[in-house]
Design a protein around this nucleic acid. Structure first.
Length: 496
RNA sequence: GCCCGCAUCGUCUAGCGGUUAGGACACCACUCUUUCAAGGUGGUAACCGGGGUUCGACUCCCCGUGCGGGUACCA
């Protein structure tokens, strides 16, 4: 078989210092999906502390390509705390890390395959292919290429190409079977009869994923490939291609997909599905990482709170799960709450800032302290603190609670003295007052305290649920609190 | 249609021939408490079905069912 190439332009495979090299190779077509991020996380963690993690941009589809995605992806990975040793922005020994900039390598590989007879040029039109598949389907046969151009004489093929006829390069799948030992699924066996003569090089000169992935994983010295099970049935094609090129393939780990609550593939109708969406909802990267890791992995112990560094230390291929996982947002919420509570207040204050632009800088830390134990997502902060930024308008019924109108009124009238001075004494003063009201019976006093607290809370905040009252009042200031109590008094007094 | 994968509480999972089938989320009580949280205590809840193999199956094998994936000049 001839090829019109001048030698083999393929570079040498990067020489390895014997360590693990895993990559994340996203296709830049929008925002990073939570499922993709999980495989990135697995790859990052499984590389281990001694291994290397790299990012490669798989932009081999010109139609779907979105340039803006690349920096966004990198930003997202970095936000989650993952560090890559090599990538499009920082280079490395296998530059470039963007596939569209590596076209000559793929073309050289394709030429080599054609040269050795492991691949061939195909001139079939899309229409012919569509008809073929439709016919096979109605006949109950598997849909696959029929080998129409498989044995075209070399000179005919050459002539048609030089005549300008568009062509693709297809893999010539040999008879036999393909097997490998999957790191997650165990031994796999495919009859090559069921493997299609896949297109490797498109008519626009770009490689398909199948070729690009094989060539680049080899050149970049990838040792293990972690990917979703949706790639399982194309693995034989990849293995055949590695063999035809005389290369040793990496090991494969096919992880199960992440599904929505209705057990179908995660999609828009399930709500948030990209990392950025989760971020905007107020989820911490620490929580997302912890959560995602457990969707398909577990340490085998009863520990469940892990940070990224611990995950990288502990994760192994053996403990990856082969069954699909459903994204359970309630559990994510729980973990997010755990991580929010673990944060130092100053840190939490910083993270709250974008969710609470109306807060003054000096308010942020006290606010963080107040909400830390009662939020599961950062976006709950504004709701919890609405009273601090808008004037409450409680109605008379709302103001009474457990106390009668008279009792509430009487209590409210005494609030100015309770609020005088420092709010830290508020509770103490209130207890004194309760003692006065309840006399010797502690149960009555307690009941009064509860009722009075509610009245005061509603009067000053307009809400039944707020952070602890003294702090809440501090947030708006005692002067404002006094004014609100006055207004409440008017509202309550007006009804008789 | 054809090829392939998966299968333990509602959910995430532990289990790798012999266990009272464990933990966590959620849920329900109780408790702590100025509300709400957080915390503590307890509770409800699972081995998809049928055949084998075995002294013994959640665990191994086969069939079925269910769910998922692939079936592109998309990844």
């Amino acid at each position: 078989m001839s090829s019109d190439l001048v030698g083999d332009l393929l570079p040498e495979r990067v020489s390895l210092p014997g360590q693990r090299r895993l990559r994340f190779a996203p296709s830049p077509t929008g925002d990073l999906h939570i499922g993709n991020v999980r495989t990135a996380l697995f790859s990052y963690c499984l590389a281990g502390e001694a291994g290397r993690f790299l990012i490669r941009i798989e932009d081999t589809d010109q139609d779907r390509y979105q340039a803006e995605s690349v920096p966004r992806y990198l930003e997202t990975i970095a936000w989650l705390g993952m560090h890559w040793d090599e990538g499009p922005d920082r280079g490395g020994p296998c530059q470039p890390y963007v596939e569209s900039e590596r076209l000559p390598f793929f073309q050289a590989a394709a030429d080599r395959l054609v040269g050795s007879g492991a691949a061939y040029f195909c001139f079939c039109s899309k229409e012919r292919l569509d008809q073929l598949r439709a016919a096979q389907r109605t006949a109950g046969l598997p849909t696959r290429y029929d080998g129409h151009c498989r044995d075209l004489p070399g000179d005919e093929s050459r002539a048609r190409r030089s005549g300008g006829e568009p062509s693709v390069v297809r893999l010539r799948v040999p008879a036999g079977e393909t097997r490998w030992d999957d790191l997650v699924l165990g031994p796999q066996l495919f009859d090559n009869e069921s493997v299609d003569d896949q297109v490797l090089l498109k008519s626009d000169g770009f490689p398909t994923y199948h070729l690009a992935q094989v060539v680049d994983d080899h050149l970049m010295g990838i040792t293990e490939v972690v990917r979703g099970v949706e790639w399982l049935s194309s693995t034989p094609k990849h293995l055949i291609t590695y063999a035809a090129l005389g290369w040793q393939p990496p090991r494969f780990a096919h992880v199960a997909l992440v599904l929505g609550p209705d057990h179908s593939k995660l999609s828009k109708r399930h709500g948030a599905q990209t990392v950025n969406e989760f971020r905007d909802l107020g989820y911490l990267p620490e929580a997302l990482v912890n959560f995602l890791a457990f969707l398909g992995w577990s340490p085998g112990t009863e520990e469940e709170i892990f940070d990224l560094a611990q995950l990288r230390q502990r994760m192994t291929f053996e403990r990856l799960q082969s069954s699909p996982a459903i994204l359970d947002q309630q559990r994510l919420d729980y973990l997010n709450g755990v991580w929010i509570r673990k944060l130092p207040v100053e840190q939490l204050a910083q993270r709250i800032e974008p969710f609470l632009p109306q807060a003054a800088p000096e308010q942020l830390i006290p606010i963080a302290a107040m909400v830390q134990e009662r939020i599961r997502r950062l976006d709950q902060v504004p709701g919890l603190l609405a009273f601090a930024f808008t004037e409450p308008a409680p109605d008379a019924d709302f103001l009474k609670g457990k106390l009668s109108r008279e009792e509430a009124l009487a209590f409210l009238q005494r609030v100015p003295e309770l609020l005088a001075g420092n709010t830290s004494q508020l509770m103490e003063k209130l207890r004194e007052l309760a003692h006065e009201q309840g006399g010797s019976d502690p149960a009555t006093a307690k009941k009064f305290t509860q009722g009075a607290m509610r009245v005061l809370r509603v009067a000053t905040t307009g809400a039944e649920v707020t952070p602890p009252l003294p702090e809440s009042i501090d947030l708006i200031g005692t002067a404002a609190a006094q004014a609100r109590v006055q207004r409440a008094l008017e509202v309550l007094g007006a009804v008789s």
